[in-house]
């Protein structure tokens, strides 16, 4: 296994996440897409940490941070989605356009 293989995998993962964020209309699906993108970033960190970095501890600490952050983010995002759903009985992003100019 080499570094380009890992980065290609991470890129793939990221593009899948981005696609989900851009193409899906369901807020939950978009949230999952964001999670995928975060994980792609984590994979990148771990790969570079393993192959390049002189001190392996730094990359692992950052990945741990990202996991913690993702957990917190999911909690807040899900509660926002729930609140939106309670208010308007829909979580379709096409209908949430109040902030347009």
């Amino acid at each position: 296994m080499t570094l380009p293989a890992f980065t290609m995998f991470a890129l793939l993962l990221f593009c899948m996440g981005l696609y989900a964020v851009l193409a899906r209309r369901n807020l939950i699906a978009i949230l999952i897409g964001i999670e995928l993108m975060l994980n792609a970033a984590s994979v990148n960190f771990m790969a570079f940490n393993y192959f390049v970095a002189p001190d392996p501890a730094v990359g692992q600490i950052i990945v741990l941070f990202i996991i913690g952050l993702a957990a917190a983010e999911v909690a807040i995002a899900l509660s926002i989605i729930l609140a939106v759903y309670r208010q308007r009985r829909a979580i379709d992003i096409e209908q949430l356009t109040e902030v347009k100019g």
Binding site: V21, I93, L96, T97, K100, G101
Partner: peptide, 12 residues
């Protein structure tokens, strides 16, 4: 302002 559709996915 009129150009802003409010559609998040277009922005992203």
């Amino acid at each position: 302002a009129r150009r802003h559709s409010g559609r998040l996915q277009l922005y992203i």
